[in-house]
């Protein structure tokens, strides 16, 4: 039975079963909650973004090239996860592994940049306790970074099982939901680079 399912993948395998449908809907509900979570962190950050305390001001702190590179990496990884889902719709297992694998690598590159960035900031006196700006900054950007790390672990876990389990109506919703999560992380980053970095640079 399992071989039959895997060779005859339905057109929309992520929603071919009731369980798959419910999984996708449930995940959207989770994303609705995430919108509120990040929204409240954004509101806090916007309200406190000029309370520099003893730390440096955002205009001198932020480096636009570093943020631009991080943004490019994350936007590109979002494209790769879409290509991974399209490979899944074509029942192309090696394509799924390739595109989601690259997505994970780009996610790791983004995390590396973020860790380097935080190290630099701490050396410049911008810490969690240097002022309300510092607290709000690390809470918001750190929460996003933790989501990226979560996504990297999640997708890696799915990919490690995929060669054995294959593409079917059980594994397809899992991949689809992981790609939704990855796009959502990217969506949050769009607002982080706009509100935190670009608006911080403008002052």
């Amino acid at each position: 039975m399992s071989t039959e399912v895997s060779t005859n993948l339905p057109p929309h395998p992520e929603k071919a079963t009731l369980e798959g449908k419910n999984k996708v809907l449930g995940f959207w509900l989770f994303l609705g909650g995430e919108v509120i979570l990040f929204g409240s962190l954004f509101a806090t950050f916007i309200a406190l973004r000029t309370a520099f305390g003893s730390g440096p001001a955002s205009q001198e702190l932020f480096s636009l090239p570093l943020t631009a590179v991080a943004t490019f990496i994350l936007l590109t990884s979002s494209l790769f996860s879409v290509l991974g889902i399209q490979a899944m719709h074509r029942n192309d297992l090696s394509g799924v592994l390739k595109w989601f694998g690259i997505t994970v690598l780009f996610g790791l590159a983004f995390l590396g940049l973020e860790i380097y960035e935080f190290f630099e900031y701490v050396h410049e006196g911008h810490t969690m306790s240097s002022g309300a700006f510092g607290s709000a900054f690390y809470t918001l950007v750190g929460f996003h970074g933790a989501h990226v790390l979560g996504g990297v672990c999640w997708i890696t876990g799915l990919l490690s099982k995929l060669p054995k389990k294959g593409l079917n109506v059980v594994t397809a919703p899992k991949l689809y939901v992981a790609s939704l999560y990855w796009h959502f992380i990217d969506l949050v980053w769009v607002f982080i680079f706009t509100v935190v970095y670009l608006m911080g640079k403008v002052g």
Partner: peptide, 17 residues
């Protein structure tokens, strides 16, 4: 769901600021 979230977020931002 998403638009409800956006509505709350807009409310947060207006209230906080």
């Amino acid at each position: 769901g998403i638009w409800m979230g956006v509505f709350f977020v807009a409310a947060f931002i207006i209230v906080f600021i």
